[in-house]
């Protein structure tokens, strides 16, 4: 409860990830509408509708940026998703940057793969304002930290405690590179996740009723389905043993393509419709205003 109040009132400002200048893209911050790097700024967005926070967790190259880029492209192109139309974002340039990175990946540019991604400490909060003709407005917030940030969270015990947004996430999606899960890199993958999950647990990040989901990305690159099935089950058990909670749902997707990709679209619909379960189809505005409720309780 106090964490949420801190998020709202800014009692305990989040530390902006330390970034060496050389590791940052050369022109981040030169445009209006960049992604946000300060969790506190989300406060400013909360006045009109309750934000629904989805945090994408995963290491370098697991496909978080491709996923969020495909989500953005789908919202841009479709009249609506599950009846919700996309009409605004404070972070349009942040979203365009991610589309740019996805395009580079798909054009086989011969540069080191680890450079074609969201970089360490890059602004990561992305907003989507959606509107439904019957149910009104919805603010979806997606946290797309760089894989290096999560490597940092895994390697340094207390580091993740600074991430206020994870503490307040409605949904955490753990991305897994399915190709790596089936090849010689699987031990590296599972060990790094074990470190991260332990740090998350030790910092009390699994106490809320957050939806925990595993997203097996790059499913098209899996050659041996039996092996994948076994490794998938082992990983789920591993996760559940560490966090002492059940993983709610798992998804098998390819995040970098929208062609004939109904599974991906269904997942997008799920994010929009079911990140926060409503008790009725048409929630009252007052019950959504948890920002003010929390502030008032604090007073």
């Amino acid at each position: 409860m106090d964490d949420k109040i801190e998020l709202i009132t800014g009692v305990n400002p989040a530390e902006v990830p330390a970034v060496k200048p050389a590791e940052r893209a050369d022109n981040i911050g030169q445009f209006i509408g960049e992604a946000m790097s300060d969790d506190q700024k989300i406060n400013a967005l909360m006045s009109s509708s309750k934000p629904e926070i989805t945090v994408l967790v995963g290491f370098v190259g697991y496909g978080k940026t491709s996923f969020v880029s495909s989500f953005y492209q789908t919202l841009l192109q479709k009249e609506d998703i599950a009846g919700y139309a996309f009409y605004d974002s404070e972070t349009l340039v942040g979203l365009e940057r991610r589309s740019f990175l996805r395009r580079l990946n798909d054009r086989n540019i011969e540069i080191a793969p680890e450079t074609k991604r969201t970089v360490l400490g890059e602004p990561y909060l992305l907003t989507f304002h959606l509107s439904h003709p019957q149910y009104g407005d919805k603010l979806v917030v997606i946290s797309d930290h760089s894989g290096e940030d999560y490597a940092d969270y895994a390697a340094k015990k207390g580091k993740i405690a600074d991430d206020i947004l994870i503490k307040n996430a409605d949904r955490i999606m753990f991305f897994v590179d399915s190709e790596k899960l089936c090849n010689e890199q699987r031990l590296s993958l599972t060990t790094q996740y074990q470190q991260l999950l332990r740090n998350m647990k030790e910092n009390g990040l699994f106490v809320r009723k957050t939806k925990l989901q595993l997203v097996f990305n790059k499913i098209d690159k899996v050659n041996d389905e039996n092996k994948f099935g076994k490794e998938k089950e082992k990983l789920i058990t591993n996760f559940e043993d560490i966090i002492n909670l059940k993983i709610g749902q798992t998804f098998e997707i390819r995040a970098n393509s929208l062609k004939n990709n109904n599974k991906l679209i269904s997942l997008f619909e799920d994010i929009i419709l079911h990140t926060v379960e409503e008790t009725s189809n048409q929630p009252q505005a007052s019950s959504l205003d948890w920002v003010n409720e929390m502030i008032n309780k604090k007073k």
Binding site: Q73, L76, R103, D106, R107, N108, S257
Partner: peptide
């Protein structure tokens, strides 16, 4: 509109 990555040709190597 923003270009879908799917619309790029895969052989368009830079």
């Amino acid at each position: 509109s923003s270009v879908f990555a799917d619309q790029f040709q895969n052989d368009d190597t830079i």
